[in-house]
């Protein structure tokens, strides 16, 4: 049996697909489900452009098999905004010009959201180490780090 039927949840929606056993979750998302917001930069877990969460855990979707999503909950960039209501991080990235070409942006945003869920008040150093696996070649990281720190601050203020 070289393909498997998988029942999973993606961005809160029940999804079923049949995928080759050796297909990565990234390949399934992009090629089978047409969810191209998750990007491929290296295919070896070194760039973070394909970051998603599986059961709330931040992973590179190129290093997860499509079959492993069985019974789990996957979150991708497509589920980050609530319809046209952007997530605070998305808004802040726009406002602070924390993106240039934008290819790393979905992965960085997913990683940043995952950080702020675990640590709502990260230091600059904690942000930098958390997203060290998200390569960005355009920005030099400065505006990305600032946007994440500022999002964290505003989210804390809103929660207070």
């Amino acid at each position: 049996m070289s393909s498997t039927h998988v029942s999973t949840k993606i961005n809160g929606q029940a999804v079923e697909y049949v995928c080759p056993n050796d297909a990565s979750l990234l390949e399934v998302l992009r090629d089978q489900l047409g969810m191209t917001g998750t990007k491929e930069g290296c295919g070896s877990g070194d760039c973070g452009a394909c970051s998603v969460t599986v059961d709330g855990r931040l992973v590179c979707s190129c290093l997860v098999l499509g079959v492993e999503a069985q019974g789990r909950a996957v979150e991708t960039i497509e589920g980050m905004a609530n319809k046209n209501q952007l997530h605070k991080l998305q808004e802040k990235f726009l406002e602070k010009a924390a993106l240039q070409c934008g290819i790393c942006t979905p992965g960085v945003l997913i990683a940043a959201r995952s950080l702020l869920e675990k640590n709502p008040d990260p230091t600059e150093q904690e942000v930098r180490y958390w997203i060290a696996g998200n390569l960005c070649r355009c920005t030099g990281y400065d505006k990305i780090v600032r946007a994440i720190l500022e999002s964290a601050k505003e989210l804390r203020e809103e929660a207070a």
Binding site: M35, T36, L94, P106
Partner: peptide
């Protein structure tokens, strides 16, 4: 182009 880029809607070469 920012909105499309932060929501994953922007279409790149492989998309």
């Amino acid at each position: 182009d920012g909105f499309d880029k932060v929501t994953g809607r922007a279409r790149y070469g492989a998309d």
